[in-house]
Design a protein around this nucleic acid. Structure first.
Lengths: 198, 198
DNA sequence: CGAGCGCTTGATTGAGTTCAAAAATCGTGG
DNA sequence: CCACGATTTTTGAACTCAATCAAGCGCTCG
């Protein structure tokens, strides 16, 4: 749980004792690439903190098209907040893009911890606000930016994912077809653009 | 403050005394159509609860195009949560589409109330979660739905706004041009669709 | 009562989709 | 470690939805 521990102690300022309390309430798990952690129709009872590997959440629309909501590499938390909070069936899938080790955090635990500890609650609030901010940003991109700009934004914000996520998934996240993304990349290459690490 | 009171007592279950406490901490205000409550660059220090009238938030992108984020008719709260919470300059405008009476709620008040009252905090959490849910829904629509579907969704979810908001603003909210919206409506009319109240 | 704003309509353009198929890459078993 | 099948990416051509540009209509409000 090294990442998990660092996340809660360094970033959030829990001391050793406080962390030990939390630790006893969560579970360490592993799953293989392709395995599912959440299906539509289920109520999302957990948050998943990624220790190592890569998870994603996505929906499948009426036309059978996949729309990726979020990628969660190391140190990210993924879940369906609405489903958890309102106790409603989720509309998301969550599955593993790579073999993944993660910390399973019970939803009720988060709620209880929020009621007992002010600092935990503040931390949780901050996470909520960050979530809102990122959703808003995504809306702005979808409304205002073309395929190329969205891809450039993705590159600058998630350069590490570029190497780990198949292109068609990035396309799905950006809300375009894999073909379009391929053309965008071709165009960028022609104009001599290369991501830093090439 | 009749709406405001109803909102906090009926919907949220505050008793008379509790409401009086809150009441003393907020301010009743009026502004005229076209007046601004927030400009980009400012830090958003307030939430605005609409008693009567209609507010909106929007951004203007690099190409000078307006993108409406949210409409707030009676009993809605509008603000820039990210700006408030992270104490960052906002990117939004908030202004009045109609002459509007509203309750001005200080951001610090919300924070303090959340720390003092469990029920207030729960209520606030719920509002946050609702916000996330609506943002997520908007993303789904933007990614998956065409102009007509988005408009239909708008009609069913905000039938009251249809009569009060100029069409070009609805177009802006939907992420399409006024011309396109006009054509969508024409097409719907041809297919003999009418909103209930016609 | 006229100037401006909002809405409509038409013609054209363009970004991205769709469908199809070839090329490249990946991964798994022999 | 190689080879073969599957998956992913690329490329091409036709098409589609919505944007853009431009013009005209009608209402209102100053």
């Amino acid at each position: 749980m090294t990442n998990f521990k660092a996340y809660y102690t360094e970033k959030y300022g829990l001391n050793e004792t406080q962390f030990e309390e939390i630790k006893s309430l969560v579970t360490y798990k592993k799953i293989e690439k392709g395995a599912f952690l959440l299906h539509p129709g289920e109520i999302c009872q957990h948050s998943f903190f990624v220790e190592k590997g890569l998870l994603r959440s996505y929906t499948i629309d009426e036309q059978g098209k996949e729309h990726i909501i979020q990628f969660a590499p190391e140190n990210w938390i993924i879940s369906d907040r609405s489903s958890s909070f309102f106790n409603e069936p989720s509309e998301f899938y969550i599955d593993a893009i790579e073999d993944t080790e993660f910390i399973l955090i019970d939803t009720t635990f988060i709620q209880k911890a929020s009621e007992l500890s002010t600092s935990f609650r503040q931390f949780n609030d901050r996470a909520l606000q960050n979530h809102i901010r990122s959703l808003q940003k995504r809306i702005n991109l979808l409304i205002g930016a073309n395929a190329e700009t969205r891809y450039m934004d993705f590159i600058t914000n998630y350069p590490d994912l570029l190497l780990r996520v198949p292109q068609w998934m990035i396309a799905s996240y950006l809300g375009i077809t894999p073909e379009s993304l391929s053309r965008v990349r071709k165009e960028l290459a022609k104009r001599n653009f290369k991501p830093k690490f090439d």
